[in-house]
Design a protein around this nucleic acid. Structure first.
Lengths: 146, 146
DNA sequence: GCGTTTCCCATTGACGCCCATATGGTCCCA
DNA sequence: TGGGACCATATGGGCGTCAATGGGAAACGC
């Protein structure tokens, strides 16, 4: 039922923390997500965040193919080597680590973006740009098919 | 059946709320729409608003293709990252959030535009302009085909 | 011991819930 | 047919609650 939807931008405080939007936290609560699995997104300069079921889904996908195939190897490199578990503090805040900053370019603000079964952390301007690129592409696709 | 028709412009109050036209609310009631799915339109600088079936239709479209494809990823970025569920207050008013203002340019007035199975929120002047552009294009198309 | 992280608590501004008022239209009845 | 009661809609605002944020101080790790 509850999905991660919408996007919102929050400030990082002097200690490097940022509040996860309340809407997202309530989705987490109702999905029984406590440990946050965070990994570097495959296509965008964003950190994807979800429950441990997210990791398990990836692992099942790896298991489904030949464990020695290049594909499975690469996949593991990304989801294991590029992933980490994190947790929120009592107020629902997240530490923005170097791991996150390096990959996303985030410095003082974080845009949280809902992706149904998980959400993402973006550098605000990067998100704007990626979204309008996607919209543009979709607009062209629409023109072609009409 | 009831469709969203016509357009009307209402004022945003000092707390950032705006009344949804009664005609639209009664269509919502008779279509059993309670949760409002609002998303940033793909082609216009407008917010499109409909029932949750609207989102589900998009999600089926995503599910139809490979969930790891770039196309599905981009689509999700738009309909999940660019969409929210909202609800009206007891008087049938809607909060005009930053999410809406940023994308539409709305500041103190909202034009509600019926689109049959959903309706849209526009910045009044943008709507005027888009409508007359559409009219013009239609006129040219008519000339060509006649 | 010093820098970093975790646990608390305080502040403030935004939002939800509630009730009040205005404005325009419709209907009824004299 | 004109006046007025009645009603629905749009709009305004009070107030309590909660979320986002800031910061002190203890706990932890190198």
């Amino acid at each position: 039922m509850g999905r991660f939807l919408s996007h919102a931008t929050n400030r990082i405080d002097s200690k490097g923390r940022v509040s996860v939007p309340a809407a997202f936290r309530s989705v987490m609560a109702q999905s029984n997500i406590q440990d946050l699995y965070c990994f570097q997104d495959f296509v965008f300069p964003a950190i994807s965040v979800g429950g441990s079921d997210l990791l398990e889904r990836f692992e099942r996908q790896i298991a489904a193919e030949d464990p020695f195939s290049p594909g499975a190897n690469e996949m593991s490199l990304l989801i294991h080597g590029g992933g980490v578990f994190m947790k929120l503090d009592a107020e629902g805040r997240l530490m923005v680590t170097e791991f996150i900053r390096d990959f996303t370019g985030i410095s003082d603000e974080v845009t949280f973006v809902g992706r149904a079964d998980h959400f993402q952390l973006w550098q605000p301007k990067e998100f704007q740009a990626a979204q309008s690129r996607a919209r543009e592409e979709r607009r062209l696709a629409g023109k072609r098919s009409s």
